[in-house]
Computed example of a mutant assay.
Amino acid sequence: MTATSLVARRTPIYGLALLVLVVTLGCGAAIGETSIPFDVVAKTVANKLWQAGYALDPIDQGIVWNYRLSRAIIAACCGASLALSGVVLQCLLRNALADPYLLGISAGASSGAVAVAILGLGAGILSFSFGAFIGAIIAFGIVSLLAARAGSGTAAIILAGIAGSQLFNALTSFMVTKSATAEQARGIMFWLLGNLSGVRWTDVTLALPVTLLGFVVCITHARSLDAFAFGADAAASLGLAVKRIYAVLITAAALMTAIMVSLVGSIGFVGLVIPHAARMIVGVRHSRLLPVAALIGAVFMVLADILSRIAIPGQVLPIGVVTALIGAPAFALLLGRRGSTR
């Protein structure tokens, strides 16, 4: 089958995937404590992007454009990025329990955010999200150095990630305990559990390009990931530059996770459960697995965000609570199904 015929064959599938994503984003913009009709959402987008001139209620239009739509796009980017990172790490580390936070990135981001918010690091120049991003990168650097000193192999990376996570979690707890007021501690705790309330279009201009770039990097290495599924030695025997591919893919996963954590905080189970769910649907070939995992992750996060806004009237749940409440039972079911098929 030629490349042209393959693309032609898969075009309807790509179109369906895009339709599912657009409908999900529309639901994220329409559903909330105050429901807004889908046609109002569509007309708002047309007014803002193409100056269509539809007469709409300014309040409804403001809710859709300034609050809900940007929030839904960030949720989709976050879900897709974490799912992609989970697929990559589970393959490279050959560990079914590997997830994007294994490398200590989430713990480092928490420490960076707390250092800015509580200790005033940066003298007001650094934002909360940028502090989280710097902390995530520092944590990834430390974990990488620990892994390099411990030796090559996936076990070294996993052990270094666990050590780094414990170190930065302890540092975060120390700073909160020593310096935070009760109000600051509540705010930090809410952010650590995942918070999409503060995201705006400026955050979309960061999250969307990072997600797209991460997807391109991952999908261009799909064949390499297929080879790594049999181990690094098997990949090397096929002529692959093992160390370079490791470095590129793990760095891509780390950067995607760092950006998302810096924007919305720690959100668990997405990068752990979604890759397994996607494998059950399309198998282990990464040319199919990566796009499906990204789509499922994006849709799941948008739906989880909707649920976080409507579950308790007048109150917004941290989205990490919702993903954990759904993800933990789902992961248990996946484990049970996997065990029953052996």
Rank of each mutant, 00 (worst) to 15 (best):
D203I: 11
S35N: 13
G28Y: 06
I162A: 15
T11D: 01
P209R: 00
A30F: 02
W65D: 11
A98M: 06
P318K: 01
P12E: 13
L307K: 12
G339K: 05
T323E: 06
K178E: 11
T257M: 10
V316Q: 14
L255S: 07
R9D: 00
P275S: 05
D99K: 13
A156Q: 03
S262Y: 14
W50L: 07
P313C: 01
G62Y: 12
G336R: 14
I219F: 00
G53T: 08
A227P: 12
T211F: 04
G151A: 07
A330L: 08
T177P: 05
I274S: 04
L49Q: 06
T220V: 14
S179A: 13
A254R: 10
S70Y: 08
R94C: 10
L97Q: 07
L171V: 15
A330S: 08
L82Q: 01
P58A: 15
I73N: 09
L93I: 03
G86C: 08
G320L: 04
A170I: 00
R279G: 02
A328P: 15
I281Y: 01
L25E: 04
A123G: 13
D203G: 12
V270P: 03
F38E: 08
R223P: 00
M1N: 13
A227V: 15
G161R: 00
I188V: 15
S110H: 02
L255K: 07
H221E: 13
V41K: 00
S308G: 15
